[in-house]
Design a protein around this nucleic acid. Structure first.
Lengths: 343, 343
DNA sequence: CAGAAATGTGCACACGTATTCACATACTAG
DNA sequence: CTAGTATGTGAATACGTGTGCACATTTCTG
């Protein structure tokens, strides 16, 4: 009696969560029985099980996933996602789909980053947890992450940038091809003075789109009128096109590295310089955000299919977990031109 | 020798992460020494520490945060965030700030939800982890979550809806007041035929904005011309205003429950019916997304300050962790009218 | 040089769970 | 009635870590 009181006091003082032992005491059974009550297919008297579950319910007990993950197969069910800046709506939308899919799989996404000023060390710190996998989404993380993952036996899935390496799965949009298609659509409309507005130049996705643009323009026997870069923001697109026009550059076709910049550029053209889109200037974006289809925009753009991307990531995760030693896989997603009203 | 081989084989077969014991063996010290090498301020010979860290580095060892969290103070450093649909840009932006802030605090956010079809059970499942706290952000989760958290001694922080309860911290925009301010701004412009376009009616934030709108209109001696609801999407705003106009409703002032719907309504007015905003129709939104300030929109709106919201959440979290028994706190954030070009 | 103080390190335990093993009981078949 | 089988259940162990405690070694002090 007295002993029970002090135990209870002690628990209260440390304010820990209810443990299986406490449920066992309350229900008058062994701790093993409690564990079995929560394990499907375990030998346990039917009446006893319901009784234990009832007591557990009252006490608000649930098995501690951390302690459980420590032993046996040792799955923590935690999956880290390193993501680029969520100010970028495309990354935000992909993250949303990814979180949803993981939840359905019974995995819990741990998010790292979501803004530009994310340090390498922070990414490595999340590896303190015994992750089921790490998903590298967009952003600009050093390759050293790969080495650490491999040493820790944490499967690595990369998306939004190409990474060819033993045992690493990767799904990425064919950015170069997307840029080439966009240029060919501008050429079809008779545009010849073409410009490119890009995002951060240290992102491989931007490098590829730029390279694709330049290649396609030269292949057509032309020279790029302008190639400029800032960030992936609306404000960046607005500012870059304004500067180009003010400096006397006369474009009739513009390819932007993402939709936000395209919309910014269109806003600058229309609001600030009275240039008509698409009559005087054709504009094509990249990503196909939901916003691009809004009637007030009707942005022509390259679809960077996020449903496909995410479903590949989820499939790769599942396959990797059931076959850890399998060969790394590389999927290139073909971008598709979406015909609307700005080109 | 032979024994070492089989041990190595066994480890390989189970492909677990490197453990402190393996580092200890490799460095020829005790397991305790390895643990101490990673603990700041622990007694350990300086040379020995660097030697251990070197070996650990080579083997790719890092302490398992799960196992560490199991004992001592018992902090897992995991913080769950239950969020509403990320299709809603406001929720996405808040999440982004929150993730960033938590990372800086050394906490790891585990995300639940992010879409409409999120089941109650899923939310409860994340409580299997010994969370440092659970943050309920927007969305429409049942109050039973509160009971479970309290039983499990998991601090609960609610944002985006009012929850008054013992030991629960809550930060929320004063939605009712925001709606009243918006109406008064419409009245100042001489608008008298006022309508409200809202989001999902089971969200308390929407109920409050609607109630504030209705109250303020009646206080001015008027009657609402229309009160309609759909979701929080651009498409919803577009459709609702179209239906109102087609059914013969003649508004001169419109208050929308969020910016996305406001932009949708404006698009419908301008593109589909040739109604001029703000000449013929004043429109005021809610949230003040980054997009609202884009020059092509210039949306007048009520600022629902996310920096303030997030910094309150982070402050509350810190205080709650250092004083678990303290009184629950309730913060109402005052919305501010942002004067632009649509009213 | 003796005793005290300071420094360094290994042993053992606790954290909360799942699961194997051995044992106990009830039931069935011959 | 006995042997064999099916069914339940508790004790014990492993998972990987941090840390209190006791002991060992070195340095300091008078």
């Amino acid at each position: 009696m007295e002993q029970e009181l002090t135990m209870e006091q002690e628990r209260k003082a440390r304010s820990r969560r209810i443990t299986a032992e406490q449920v066992a005491n309350a229900a008058g059974v062994s701790r093993s029985a409690v564990s079995r009550a929560f394990t499907v297919g375990a030998y346990l008297d039917k009446g006893k099980r319901t009784e234990i579950l009832k007591v557990a319910q009252e006490l608000g007990y649930r098995p501690n996933a951390l302690a459980a993950g420590l032993q046996g197969e040792g799955r923590s069910n935690l999956v880290a996602i390193v993501t680029g800046s969520l100010a970028n709506h495309y990354d935000g939308d992909v993250l949303s789909l990814l979180v949803r899919g993981l939840n359905v799989m019974g995995k819990w996404p741990v998010i790292v980053g979501g803004s530009e000023d994310m340090s390498e060390a922070e990414v490595l710190n999340v590896l303190a947890y015994p992750l089921d996998a790490l998903i590298l989404r967009g952003g600009s993380v050093d390759e050293s992450v790969m080495i650490h993952c491999s040493k820790l036996n944490v499967p690595l899935i990369v998306s939004g940038r190409v990474m060819r390496s033993e045992g690493v799965d990767c799904v990425c949009c064919d950015n170069r091809r997307g840029a080439e298609i966009a240029v060919s659509e501008l050429l079809k409309k008779g545009r010849t003075r073409l410009g490119y507005i890009g995002g951060s130049e240290h992102l491989s996705s931007d490098q590829e789109r730029k390279a694709g643009f330049e290649f396609a323009v030269r292949r057509a026997g032309l020279l790029p009128e302008a190639i400029v870069q800032a960030d992936y923001s609306h404000e960046g697109g607005y500012r870059l096109l304004s500067e180009l026009i003010q400096s006397g550059c006369e474009l009739d076709g513009l390819f932007c590295a993402n939709d936000a910049m395209a919309l910014g550029a269109i806003a600058a053209a229309r609001c600030e310089f009275g240039i008509s889109v698409p009559a005087d200037l054709s504009v094509i974006g990249f990503d196909d955000l939901a916003m691009a289809a809004w009637p007030e925009f009707g942005l022509s753009t390259m679809r960077n299919d996020m449903e496909k991307t995410v479903s590949h990531i989820l499939r790769m995760l599942g396959e990797r977990l059931s076959a850890p030693e399998k060969q790394g896989e590389m999927v290139l997603i073909e971008p598709e031109f979406i015909f609307r009203n700005t080109h």
